[in-house]
């Protein structure tokens, strides 16, 4: 027993570690595992705090089908740049959509505007605008365009009938590949 290294390897000293320490370590380990199990989301890439697991995340998913989310999203991505997110238009940039006779009126007229554009003088709510709108909706799929037009007709206090994908499809076919923007007078001819 002259070499201290050797004596520690015999296990003699191990016995001096109190038993409660082992129990404490075991309890801590157990608690750690339990905490991990409850809060880790099991490494799921979608679970972030404050959610603790997939079940909880699933519970908090908003109920589907509440309103016209697609129309709102397309509006905010494409049209809101000029017409403003609240539909009130912007001075010298684009006329308002809220309460506009073009929005609330004949669907056939309204659908033509984003498909081919609108240029020249136009009366909106008793005010004359003389600007040009490019064919902002020509590149949108029929269902997206129908959703965004419906959104415009039914938001911000506007109340008018919804516009269907079929209506958009029919008018797009009728226009062919028209690249010339409409004038307000031409649109007035449309029923």
């Amino acid at each position: 027993m002259s070499n201290p290294m050797k004596s520690s390897a015999t296990g003699e000293n191990l016995a001096q570690v109190p038993v409660w320490l082992f129990i404490l370590l075991f309890v801590l380990l157990f608690w750690g595992m339990y905490y991990f199990d409850q809060n880790s989301g099991w490494f799921n890439a979608h679970v972030y705090s404050p959610y603790r697991n997939v079940a909880e995340l699933q519970l908090y998913q908003p109920a589907g089908g509440g309103g016209n989310d697609r129309g709102k999203a397309v509006y905010e991505n494409v049209c809101a740049l000029c017409h403003n997110p609240d539909g009130n238009g912007k001075p010298n940039q684009a006329p308002p959509l809220v309460g506009s006779e073009w929005v609330l009126g004949s669907p056939a007229r309204m659908i033509r505007i984003p498909l081919a554009g609108l240029a020249g003088p136009v009366m909106v709510k008793g005010q004359e605008w003389n600007l040009a709108m490019p064919a902002m909706g020509a590149a949108l799929p029929d269902d997206d365009l129908a959703a965004v037009l419906t959104y415009m007709r039914q938001s911000w206090g506007n109340k008018a009938s919804a516009i269907t994908t079929e209506q958009v499809k029919a008018i797009r076919a009728e226009l062919g590949g028209r690249s010339q923007p409409f004038t307000a007078d031409q649109l007035q001819q449309v029923p």
Partner: peptide, 20 residues
């Protein structure tokens, strides 16, 4: 943008003007 990992709902349409 509302994603699956961050649930969030858009406010009902008629009251939307209040928070935009």
């Amino acid at each position: 943008a509302p994603l699956y990992s961050t649930p969030l709902s858009s406010a009902p349409t008629a009251s939307a003007s209040a928070d935009t």
